[in-house]
């Protein structure tokens, strides 16, 4: 029975679930300027470039950055399993944002 439980623990441990990740200062330096309730959409686009996806007429925008151990986040058109989701208010101020791993 113990062996069976051990086997199931091993096989289920390999799964990579979609989940928001905590931002690390050194790796995510390029997005430390993002402050909910403060940062404006114009500033985001000026710093990070055009988003990869736009929803609800710009209310939600998504960037698909890559994570490099030396350079941190790299914003390009290559998809690397990361999503930076930004939600703005009608006035264009950042309401909420999250970095998701697994997408």
């Amino acid at each position: 029975m113990r062996k069976l439980i051990f086997f199931f623990l091993i096989v289920t441990g390999c799964t990579q679930y979609v989940r928001p990740v905590a931002q690390k200062t050194e790796l995510h330096e390029k997005i430390t300027f993002l402050k909910d309730g403060e940062t404006r959409r114009d500033e985001v686009i000026a710093r990070l470039g055009n988003p990869n996806e736009i929803y609800e007429g710009g209310h939600i925008i998504i960037f698909r950055p890559c994570e490099d151990k030396k350079e941190g986040l790299i914003f390009s058109n290559i998809e690397c399993g990361l999503s930076l989701v930004l939600v703005f208010t009608i006035e264009g101020v950042l309401e909420k944002h999250s970095l998701i791993r697994g997408r």
């Binding site: 998504i62 939600v87 997408r103």
Partner: peptide
């Protein structure tokens, strides 16, 4: 909302 789903699950 759609925004809450995307904030949780990322790009579809």
């Amino acid at each position: 909302t759609r925004a809450e789903v995307l904030l949780q699950l990322g790009s579809p």
